[in-house]
Design a protein around this nucleic acid. Structure first.
Ligand SMILES: [Zn+2]
Ligand SMILES: [Zn+2]
Ligand SMILES: [Zn+2]
Ligand SMILES: [Zn+2]
Lengths: 167, 167
DNA sequence: TGTATATCGTTATAACGTAACTTTTTTGAT
DNA sequence: ATCAAAAAAGTTACGTTATAACGATATACA
């Protein structure tokens, strides 16, 4: 039984922001939709700042927009439907999808201490959970694969013991 | 690169409730803890009724206990720490772990229409996401693997079209 | 008996998410 | 240009999920 193959994303040079944005606009246009200013703002922040919560994104709209929850959740739903972002269910945060993976499953590794998140692309043809699900009669499958753990970095707040930074 | 192997759980005769309970008590005892009445009540309901939310569980305590959120979340945390239950992050519900899997990763397939949930045991030694996470320096790994989809059953509310039950 | 630890009670509030309805903007045909 | 339809955004009001913080009891066991 063959299985998921995971490959790290964006480990080398991170793609240019403007290029990502214009590709995202193209994806939206292809779906008959448009990237309005708020949508673009959310997407940009998720591209640049990593996992953020709905209210964190909203807070950045001070004045720019009405800054109320439905705006945030509508925007996030829109971006999710295009595959441009995903929700990290285990931490209720949202994260930008690498453009190479907008239409394939992904996995995430999340540090439970500091939130550091690693993105992994996942080969759908080799992911046996999917096979199992289909064998059980399920279709329209959508994966949530999140590994939480402790990143081993020296500056991870959970690692105080290792670095000797007092109690 | 080898990968996860998923096997369905409890497809044959479901184990006896009393036997599950006494095994659970033994697991608690081994950890220097005890299954108090509320803990046992939550565990029983999750064994018998499938995925339930914290407030659903709480509601069943009418009179029996103080029935306030911290009681529920403390109880759920306790049972999770023993591995007796898990949280379905994608639906914010809790589900009993088969005793054969208290200390190994699991995957779940959840119908987004009717909530039908299938449990899958997962061989940790063959789960490549774990390998990837470790290679990145993560440890103390904990998996959230949830596939959401549409179960194909005739009585699934999302399947009205297939069964011709009006609009 | 006393001290530590485990467990439970209670109040209050934070964090996350949605329903339902209105208004504005955009689009595209006449 | 004008108007109708569709898309997007605004607004109010809630619902649901989860935690902080502190106090009271109970239990274990030296
Ligand atoms: Zn930026
Ligand atoms: Zn960390
Ligand atoms: Zn029962
Ligand atoms: Zn279903």
């Amino acid at each position: 039984m063959p299985d998921p193959l995971f490959a790290p994303t964006e480990n080398a040079a991170e793609p240019d922001l403007e290029s990502q944005l214009s590709q995202a606009r193209a994806i939206a246009r292809k779906a008959g939709k448009t990237l309005t200013p708020v949508r673009e703002y959310f997407y940009k922040r998720l591209l640049c700042e990593g996992p953020l919560g709905a209210y964190e994104l909203l807070a950045g709209l001070d004045g720019v927009a009405s800054a109320k929850p439905p705006t945030a959740y509508r925007t996030l739903e829109f971006l999710q439907e295009l595959g441009l972002i995903r929700k990290l269910q285990s931490v209720s945060k949202y994260i930008a999808t690498p453009l190479s993976a907008v239409s394939s499953p992904m996995a995430f590794v999340v540090c439970r201490q500091c939130g550091l998140t690693e993105k992994l692309e996942c080969d759908p043809a080799q992911t046996s959970v999917f096979d199992r699900a289909r064998k059980s009669g399920f279709d329209q499958l959508d994966a949530t694969i999140e590994i939480s753990g402790r990143c081993g970095r020296d500056d991870c707040p959970g690692d105080r013991l290792r670095t000797g930074r007092s109690t």
